[in-house]
């Protein structure tokens, strides 16, 4: 399979440029998503707030997070198409897609570590395969939940309301789980397992049956238009999902109300407000704390039978020793509340 080897591994064991770019994009997107995402999960923590500040604030962090998510989704689309190309045109299976053998290797390794099985060469190809599987599953979970959170109104046209908090919980918790897994797993790959990618390629190539060049050319001709259409549709879908919904208005409308509004006459007097008013007014100096009359014969005012108009007139004009009270002293609105209370018999 010289053609395929050229696709996967160049001389000297390095990846071809397209795959190196792809790998770089995945690394940048994942690290970026972690840096912009985890601080959002831990916003109350000083370290998280520091990172958000470095990112230019929470809104910048969110925009960046979404951009990186789009990058990862675009890369996922490209990855699926290239894998499909290799499989359809050359008949090559993805080397990292784990089968039962990878899990067998993994458990053998674990059993050997604990002395439950005699030491032998269990192989370490499982490390890359399991990591790949976890990445695929996790990316799918994070993309689906992320899109729900990105477009909650659209998502709720087919999902129940509880889907939003559920998606939020899964998205943030699963991201944390993935970070923990990747950090530990990568540590083990680099320092303990040293899996050989070339070995996996060689294993696959041995198992593959080479196709004649004419068949490859024919398959390529059939694949490319279909792939182009699918790629275009997926790209349009991505753009639509990124721009379709404006979940919230940009600016919360300010509360509109009259702030400066000297007490006007309300529709009706409130007995409780009147009761609360009385001890704050100097009326109580003469008419008593309960408006039941003063020590020098000032009249009791409770259960007054005066009409409000008469009451109003007396307060504003005064009578005998009682001084007049202006609207500044006792606003009209308060006067009605006061009269409502005075009209009630004392309890």
């Amino acid at each position: 399979m010289p053609d395929e080897t050229a696709i996967e591994i160049q001389s000297g064991g390095t990846l071809p440029a397209a795959q190196r770019v792809e790998r770089l994009v995945v690394i940048v997107a994942l690290i970026g998503l972690i840096i912009t995402g985890l601080p959002q999960k831990y916003t109350g923590e000083p370290w998280a707030e520091f990172v958000i500040l470095l990112l230019g604030g929470i809104e910048s962090a969110r925009i960046l997070h979404r951009f990186l998510a789009l990058l990862l989704m675009a890369e996922a689309i490209y990855h699926v198409l290239t894998l499909s190309y290799k499989w359809f045109v050359y008949g090559l299976k993805p080397i990292l897609f784990p089968g039962g053998k990878a899990f067998g290797q993994f458990f053998s390794r674990v059993f050997q570590n604990f002395g439950l099985r005699s030491d032998g060469e269990a192989g370490s190809g499982f490390a890359l395969k399991i990591e790949y599987l976890v990445l695929i599953i996790s990316t799918l979970i994070l993309i689906v939940t992320g899109l729900i959170l990105w477009n909650p109104l659209t998502a709720l046209s087919i999902l129940p309301g509880e889907a939003i908090p559920v998606a939020q919980s899964i998205h943030s918790n699963h991201a944390l789980l993935l970070v923990i897994f990747l950090v530990v797993w990568r540590f083990a790959i680099i320092f303990l397992w040293h899996p050989q990618r070339q070995k996996l390629l060689a294993e696959r190539d041995q198992a593959a049956s080479p196709r004649p060049a004419s068949e490859i050319a024919g398959r390529r001709q059939r694949f490319l238009p279909v792939a182009l259409v699918i790629a275009a549709l997926l790209a349009l879908g991505l753009i639509w999902f990124a721009t379709a919904e404006q979940t919230a208005i940009d600016t919360v409308p300010r509360q509109v109300g009259v702030v400066y509004a000297p007490q006007a006459m309300p529709d009706s007097g409130d007995v409780n407000v009147g009761a609360a008013l009385w001890p704050t007014l100097r009326c109580a100096f003469c008419h008593g704390d309960e408006a039941m009359g003063g020590p020098d014969g000032q009249p009791a005012l409770r259960n007054t039978q005066m009409t409000f108009d008469a009451f109003y007139e007396q307060v504003r004009v005064g009578k005998g020793e009682m001084p007049a009270f202006s609207a500044e002293d006792l606003p009209d609105g308060y006067l009605l509340h006061l009269w409502a209370w005075l009209s009630q018999p004392a309890s």
Binding site: G257, V259, P262, Q263, L277, P279, T280, Y334
Partner: peptide, 16 residues
């Protein structure tokens, strides 16, 4: 009494 506070503000901020 404590009500005096809001009643005082209410003189100018009647609608509120």
């Amino acid at each position: 009494p404590r009500q005096r506070i809001s009643l005082t503000c209410g003189r100018c901020h009647g609608a509120i």
